[in-house]
Write a protein that binds this DNA or RNA. Structure first.
Length: 431
RNA sequence: GGAAGGGUGUCCGAGCGGUUUAAGGAAACGGUCUUGAAAACCGUCGUGCCGGCAACGGUACCGUGGGUUCGAAUCCCACCCCUUCCGCCA
């Protein structure tokens, strides 16, 4: 969430930018509630001070009937004010959480995703002297994907992935762990992008795939209606990304400054309800209810937040380039970056089956919006600051497998394995 | 699932109705001493919120939420979590 003091001091800007992001919010009402809230809290505190004074005088003596009556009266007054406060506080919290993060100045203003900006195009759409096939055609012919039986057992938007495709997924996992664990590569990307942050490698993490409501809400990532599965018998949700159990990891903690930046590479199965996408991307493995994903998560100081964002984007590009996939880097506009984001970039890779660039990666910079509610802080020489958080896709498996299958297909329907993955597949050259 | 024990500040840990402004220890920071370090000694040392330019003042917080009381870390109720043992299990 946003800092209420910032909202007080930037009433107009907050309303305007919230509008630009497509999360219009009634700032006037929010600030009115804020004032009511503070007014009541001040009154309550004054009454409590009286109560404490009274209690202090009674430490050794027996209370007189008058003193007991006064104590009771104070208690009732406090209770009444607390009764007044509760609904104000509730509305206030609801409105406050509805305020989106402020976009950075350089984020292009736009009303829909059509106003995203293509920052860069790398590579040419893959050319074939035959009509390229879709993942599902290739997958079926090579016995790599079985969606029919998955539908029988689990419903639509599930798949059995098999054989070489599975080995390729784990080759990708190994390749990414190797790459992000390599200080020299991180340093090279830092230097190439003119950044001034340490080359600390990413630590691989297998996080829990479920989390409880309270931290999930605080992470500003819970999207119950459209995205997230709830476990009925327990207070647990299935995470929609490793990011959700990674960003919450230091919930309610104060980190020592020398621990930062904390760079994690999480690997988790991700579950998504995909409500509201009926009929969209029904074929193949582009959009499934369940997929595995490698996700970067970084906790850092406010000063380095933007540079960590840039590093994550550089890493994403490097990884995609290593796989030899054509892509575009998209700077998302205000309407598309998402509520907790101050900035957001996507990488759209080329999918020959559809003859389109489609989203395979996203990089999110939240500034302190996420950490404020999660209460993830850093203890520094001159006080305590909220950390800045960044997350970014390393690879979303089913999408990137589809992308590789389609870009690396041969005329006779086989799939060449990208060079960098072969060492992790026993030297195998094709599926 | 059954039984027992437990959740206190950065950590360990005492407190079990009113000198708690949470003992004591450790860590950390500053200082004395020392050629330097260690040790010893002295000092500092929780997080929010409200008010204030500030110094500071007020208030809340001892797993969470209710309750009892003039007064709750302390008593009562419910729930959550952790540990150990038993059972089951990859």
């Amino acid at each position: 969430m946003l800092d209420i003091q910032y909202i007080r001091e930037n009433r107009q800007a907050v309303a305007a930018k919230a509008q630009q992001k497509g999360y219009p919010v009634d700032v006037d009402t929010l600030l009115e509630l804020d004032e009511q809230r503070r007014n009541i809290v001040t009154q309550i505190d004054a009454l409590r001070a009286k109560r404490n004074d009274l209690a202090a005088t009674l430490k050794k003596t027996k209370p007189t009937p008058e003193q007991i009556a006064e104590g009771k009266s104070l208690k009732e007054q406090v209770a009444q004010l607390e009764g007044n406060l509760a609904p104000v506080e509730e509305q206030y919290q609801t409105l406050l959480r509805a305020v989106p993060n402020m976009p950075l100045a350089e984020v292009p203003v736009g009303a829909t995703e059509d106003e995203n900006v293509i920052a860069k195009t790398v590579g040419e759409p893959t050319k074939f002297d035959f009509t390229p096939k879709h993942d599902f055609e290739l997958g079926e012919a090579l016995d790599l994907i079985d969606k029919e039986r998955a539908a029988k057992i689990s419903g639509s938007r599930f798949a059995y992935l098999k054989g070489g495709l599975v080995r390729m997924q784990f080759a990708i996992v190994q390749f990414v762990m190797q790459t992000l664990g390599d200080e020299a590569i991180i340093q090279k990307l830092i230097d190439e992008n003119g950044l001034h942050i340490p080359a600390k490698p990413f630590t691989p993490v297998l996080p829990p795939a479920m989390l409880r409501t309270e931290p999930y809400v605080a992470s500003a990532r819970l999207n119950a209606e459209e995205v997230t599965y709830k476990i009925e018998q327990d207070d647990l949700w299935l995470n929609a990304s490793a990011e959700h159990t990674l960003c919450t990891m230091y919930w309610n903690e104060i980190l020592p400054e020398d621990a930062l930046p904390i760079r994690y590479l999480g690997y988790s199965t991700s579950f998504r309800r995909e409500a509201g996408t009926y009929g969209k991307d029904m074929e193949g493995i582009f959009r499934l209810h369940q997929f595995d994903k490698l996700e970067m998560e970084v906790f850092c100081t406010p000063e380095t937040g933007l540079e960590e964002h840039k590093l994550q984007i550089a890493i994403q590009e490097y990884l995609v380039q290593q796989l030899g996939l054509p892509y575009r880097l998209i700077q998302k506009c205000t309407a598309d970056i998402g509520k907790p984001n101050a900035s957001g970039y996507d990488i759209d890779c080329w999918f020959p089956g559809q003859q389109k660039y489609r989203e395979t990666h996203t990089a999110d910079y939240m500034t302190d919006y996420q950490s404020r509610d999660l209460k993830v802080r850093v203890r520094r020489q001159d006080g305590i600051d909220l950390v800045h958080t960044n997350d970014a896709t390393a690879f979303a498996m089913s999408r990137i497998l589809k992308c590789i299958m389609e870009n690396y297909q041969t005329a006779d329907g086989r799939i060449v394995i990208p060079e960098v993955l072969r060492p992790y597949m026993g030297g195998q050259a094709e599926l």
